[in-house]
Design a binder for these strands. Sequence first.
DNA 1: ATCGGTGCAAAGCTTTTGCAAAAGA
DNA 2: TCTTTTGCAAAAGCTTTGCACCGAT
Lengths: 157, 157
Amino acid sequence: MRKFATESDLTHIPAMKHALNQKPEYEKELRKAGVRITRPRRIILDILSSTEDHPDAMKIFHRAIEIDDSISLSTVYRTMNLLEDMGAIHRHAFNGGPSRFEQAHGDHHDHLIDIDTGAVIEFKSDKIEKLQEEIAKSLGYDIVHHRLELYARKTEK
Amino acid sequence: MRKFATESDLTHIPAMKHALNQKPEYEKELRKAGVRITRPRRIILDILSSTEDHPDAMKIFHRAIEIDDSISLSTVYRTMNLLEDMGAIHRHAFNGGPSRFEQAHGDHHDHLIDIDTGAVIEFKSDKIEKLQEEIAKSLGYDIVHHRLELYARKTEK
DNA sequence: ATCGGTGCAAAGCTTTTGCAAAAGA
DNA sequence: TCTTTTGCAAAAGCTTTGCACCGAT
């Protein structure tokens, strides 16, 4: 996680291997919640914790069946719902397309989506967060969560 | 459109009857683009220009068949795609749900969604827009469009 | 041995599409 | 008249669900 040399408060979160290999930790938490650690779930958790992109269910499914070809797509969907409910992952609907997922690592961030490649860059701006709070407050609301997505194209050189 | 008495640059866009009754204007533009003004289209345009919410296709369809019960849902979808391509409406996918639409009136704005009622409040912050530009720039991108949604709950009194 | 989880197939929901008939220009 | 547009019904894409079997604890 590095700061950019601008006057802004932008934090770029570069190709972060999301807190890699916290598998045991995760399983502990899941067990505590009364969730069984099954083979499909372990595989899906592995995929999520080792990926750098924001795959959709189908993509996760394809990666999963390479490891165990008996896993079904329904299990992928069910597991994503379970993990989302537990707060272990976040769901996005970029462009209104199919849900894409990412492991929830501690700090919140927003997304810049490359409209040509679909690539996703994570970033964070405390200034924007603060402004959002101000806005909600002046409208008489408290923010529960928010979504900021920049759809962008690489600057022409 | 009124300014709030805060130090922020927030602009609230209150229950704006989106540039009401520009029907003739719209039709002119559509004709110019070689689009035929049909009965279903006129009805859908009417609905869009007179509504204050952000209806989805099904809601538009139901309002439409009250005026002309021969209109089909496919026509609603086709018309929404047409109008979106022409830039006459904007499409949103709040919460990843079905697309919801609003007539495009000149100025861009973002949305605060009341998570209890589904109500949508429009607002605009030049400061946030500017920060977004800075962020994209420092990541080597130009913003094509963006989406900022605040999911919020009314402040407890 | 329990009871939760899985795979499979079927269904659900939103959205798109093929086609013949209808209607703008 | 000549295309475009429509309605209908069917299909497509993503996601959920019912059910009987399987497997983690």
